[in-house]
Every structure is written in C-alpha cells, then in structure tokens.
C-alpha cells in the first residue's frame, strides 16, 4: 500500500477550537520522512500550520475548505524556513488571500526567493517569541531555535493544551509503515533517534527548550514529521529528549 491518505482527522477539539491533521502523501523524494500539515480553527477563523510544498497543496486546500472558507484563513504559521514547510508559499497567496505569514524574523528576507511574494503580509516573530491572536484566542509562538533551524518556533494552543513542535519529535518510519498516534512509545523512540541526533544543533538548545516546555500544561504534542503524542506519551517524549545525551555539534569530534 502506498502511503497516501486523503481525508483529514480532527486531532483535538474543545468547543469552537479544533486542531486538524490534513492528510498524507508519500513522494519518493521524502524517503519515509513524511510531513504533517495542520489546520487550527478557532471561532470561525483558521491558521494553517506548516502547510508544506507544492505537491501536497491540492490535498491541503481541499481539506481546509471542509472546515472553513478560504477567506477565513487569516494566517499561516511557519515553524521554520525549510521547503517541506514553506514550499507552497507562492500559491498560498492566490488561494488564501487574507492569510498573513508568521515566521521567524531571521527568515523573512529569504522567503521571497520562493517567488515574488510582495502580496504576502509577513509578520516577523522576534527571537523571544510572540502571541498570535486567532478568533477570540491567544496562541503562543514559543522559541525552539537551533532545533534544528536557527529560527524555529513551536505553537502552543492553550485551549487544547496542544503544542505543535515543528521538527522536534520528527520520526522516520520504516518503509510501508505509518501511524498518526504514538501507541508504543519504546518502539516509536527508535524511529526518532537518528533524526534528533543528526538534525538538532546541540544539547544546550534542547535543554533551554525543555526548561520552557516543561512548564506547559500538555495533552497533545504534534510534530511536523512522524506521529502525535497524547496523554502520558507527551511526558514520556519530554523525558526521552532529556535523556537523549549529546546531539548535533556535541557529537562532532
């Protein structure tokens, strides 16, 4: 079976706030590093979260309009600058005309290379983080720099006790296998290890992030790659990161 799931799944819901996973494509170039795209809906407005590249855009668009009109998509949250996150920026402008782009201040001068994006309103996220308003809710852009990108943000949704972690929590599935929710944490940890050892810049960055995230009330952790942690597994994931030892530049001889 090819890994291609067209239908969205509501991951978390609380009153008028919903976090929706937007389906799955496996292209050959991804080599098992599947990307998740999400939509956060609050009080009739919506924010796209790491909507991905050109090749997934049609599915993303079709699933978004199942929940809101395109005009109601008021923002796009980019955790960082990578092509698997931002690749479709050029076309987003055409299909979601009212969407502002939230991205680290260090990337706004690079994103125009994806094509002229003069019409896109960029909101620069300062290194220290920011509050993003959606509907009647406040969301928090939490710094996660150097994990792996030097300008990397997580998004915390207090109403759902949900943290979107960008590339943190990424997993590489064995061929032909995929699941949306982590059920067997120990098995899943094996799929995460290589990515975190190779991509995360250094232990110091990870510790700084852990210190901040440990204070959050968490029920769901949703990464851009791999599977979603719920309940007890959110705590296990954080513990796993703490005990991971040296990563990235720490390992260089």
């Amino acid at each position: 079976m090819t890994l291609k799931v067209r239908n969205p799944v509501v991951v978390a819901e609380n009153g008028d706030v919903r976090f929706v996973w937007l389906g799955l494509d496996e292209s050959e170039a991804e080599k098992g590093i599947l990307a998740n795209q999400y939509l956060l809906v609050a009080d009739g407005e919506a924010l796209l979260v790491d909507p991905g590249g050109y090749y997934v855009f049609e599915r993303v668009y079709k699933n978004v309009v199942k929940y809101v009109d395109p005009e109601k998509v008021v923002g796009v949250f980019y955790s960082h600058q990578d092509p698997d996150v931002t690749g479709s920026l050029n076309i987003i402008e055409d299909f979601f005309p009212n969407a502002k782009v939230y991205v680290s201040a260090i990337w706004t001068r690079f994103l125009p290379h994806l094509g002229a994006v003069a019409g896109v309103k960029m909101v620069e996220l300062p290194d220290t983080g920011a509050t993003i308003r959606l509907g009647k809710r406040n969301l928090e852009a939490i710094p996660a720099h150097f994990l792996h990108s030097p300008g990397h943000f997580n998004l915390y949704v207090p109403d759902l006790k949900l943290l979107f972690t960008g590339d943190i929590g990424a997993a590489v599935f064995p061929e032909g296998e995929w699941y949306l929710y982590v059920e067997n944490f120990d098995e899943h940890a094996k799929y995460m290890e290589w990515f975190h050892k190779r991509f995360m810049a250094c232990r110091k960055a990870l510790d700084k992030w852990l210190a901040r995230v440990e204070k959050l009330d968490l029920e769901v952790i949703a990464p851009q790659h791999g599977a979603i942690f719920t309940g007890e597994n959110t705590r296990r994931f954080i513990e796993w990161l703490r005990s991971l030892g040296p990563v990235g530049a720490d390992i260089l001889g």
């Binding site: 067209r6 032909g176 995929w178």
Partner: peptide, 28 residues
C-alpha cells in the same frame, strides 16, 4: 480505499488503522 475512507490513522503491511471518537472516548 486509502484515499476514500475517513478516520484512517495508520497503515502497516496492507492493514489500516481507524480511530473513532465520541466525546472523550476513542476507539482504535
């Protein structure tokens, strides 16, 4: 099937996982 069915949350060796929830309860 993969494209058409809703609630799919897993694929493994020709099998699919469905997740269905009602209020706080989930069945997989």
């Amino acid at each position: 099937i993969l494209e058409g069915l809703p609630f799919i949350t897993g694929i493994r060796g020709g099998r699919i996982q469905l997740s269905l929830s009602r209020m706080l309860f989930r069945f997989r």
